[in-house]
Amino acid sequence: MSLLSEDDKKYLKELFKGMKKDVNILFFITEDKKLCMMCDDVKEILGDLKTLSDKIKVKELSFENDKDEVKKYDVRMAPSVVLLSDKDLGVKYYGIPGGYEFSSLVEDINDIGNDFISLDESVMDDVKSIDKDVHIQVFVTHTCPYCPSAVRTAHKFAMVNDKIKSDMIDANTFYEYADTYGVSAVPRVVINNKDFFEGSLPEREFLKRVLNSLK
C-alpha cells in the first residue's frame, strides 16, 4: 500500500500545479540502520512527490560517502532533508518529515516552487532587515499537532533571509541530541544555541524572540 492516498496525491498535484521554480530536495541517508529505520518510507514519499510535479527534483545522498555535499550544505546529522531553490535556503529537516511534519514539508515545497512566502508584510520587512547570523532549531515529535506551525515560521524566516538558517529536529530520532538541549516538551525552539521557548507563537512574537536573542 502506498503511504500517500490517491486523494492526497490528487490534492497535492492540484496544489503544486502552478509552481514556477524548481524545488530541489536532497535526502541524506545514513548507514546507521536504527536511525534510518523509516528511510525507505521517505524514499517512497519523495518518489511520489516527484511524479506529482515536474518542478520537484529529488536527489538521494549518503551522509557517510557524499562528503562534499555534506560539507557544502552543512549537514550535521542524518537522515535529513535539505530543501533548495536554485540556491541554499537554509531550510532543513533532521529526522524524517513524517506525521504532522509532512504538512510542513508540503507547505515549504509550495512556498519555494511558487517563490511566494506568506508572511505578514511588516513581519517580512523586519525579518529581511536582520543582518546577523541566526540559527533556529525547532525540536518536534511526529505526533505533535502544534509543532508544524513553529517549524513553518522558522523555515519561512530562513527562506526570506540568507542570514537565517533553520532546522526541524525530530526529538525521537535524535533523542540524545535533544537531551543535550533538555527537550522534554515540544515544540521547543532554540535560537542561536542560547535562547529558547516552548510552544507555537504567532509570527510576530516568534520574531520578537529572535530579535531579542540578537541584542
Partner: peptide, 17 residues
C-alpha cells in the same frame, strides 16, 4: 519546570519519556 518536565500533552511529549 513548565516545558521542562511538566507537560499538558501526552500525544506531543509522551515519547520523550
Amino acid at each position: 519546570f513548565h516545558g521542562k518536565g511538566i507537560s499538558y500533552c501526552a500525544t506531543c511529549d509522551g515519547a520523550l519519556f
